[in-house]
Amino acid sequence: MNPILEIKNLHTKIGDKEIIKGLNLTVNPGEVHAIMGPNGTGKSTLANVIAGKDGYEVTEGEIWFNGKNILELDPEERALEGIFLGFQYPVEIPGVSMTNFMKAAIDAQRKYKGLDPIKPGEFLKMYREKQELVNMPDKIKNRSVNEGFSGGEKKRNEIFQMAMLNPKLAILDETDSGLDIDALRSVAEGVNKLRSNDNAFIVITHYQRLLDYIVPDIVHIMYDGKIVKTGDKELAKELEAKGYDELVASN
């Protein structure tokens, strides 16, 4: 079995500051990885670097996705290859309706595969199905992307988009932050419904709480730009009990 994602000795700088300092990570199909760690250890940077955001300099190391070195690819090319990033702070795009946005994204994906644009009827059917899958209120579809959405709606909208685009690898960057328990549960339900043997998830979170609902196969502790500890789901519980300081110190 070939890994979906393989990161080897990754070093990344923002400006002069090194954020990621030699990170290794292998994600296989069917796996859910959790990356935990305190603020400022480079978790979001890792997510952005995998997705190809501008402003990060990779000074060393490699990122392989499905057997392809993706470091030279544009963000849209990485997305089309099957990488999805669930944003920590989903961006508001005034004037662009959710349906138009999703239609453009689906058509871009189809074009990449050599297919014609999706037929309107087919699109709407798919849109409805995925809305139901993630419990997304119907009223949102005519609104501008994330504009005026509540915190919960924004996060749920990320999961909805993930369902529409059906990625091979979804990176969920603190999808749980700012969510009440009901929203958290429905976001997790959405993720669980989308889990399969062909795709994989990286769930970035501060807290054990989300992992009660999305049960990870592998848990990593990230600290100061590196993965310092890897274990199974019990590691998250241990972390919750001991705190980062003790866990990192004992390492």
């Binding site: 849209e76 795009i93 004037g95 946005f101 871009a108």
Partner: peptide, 20 residues
């Protein structure tokens, strides 16, 4: 970046924003 992350090209992402 948000729009491009959904697979839409840079040019189209820009057009989408300008048109909006």
């Amino acid at each position: 970046f948000y729009i491009r992350q959904r697979g839409i090209s840079k040019r189209d992402a820009q057009l989408l924003q300008l048109y909006a």
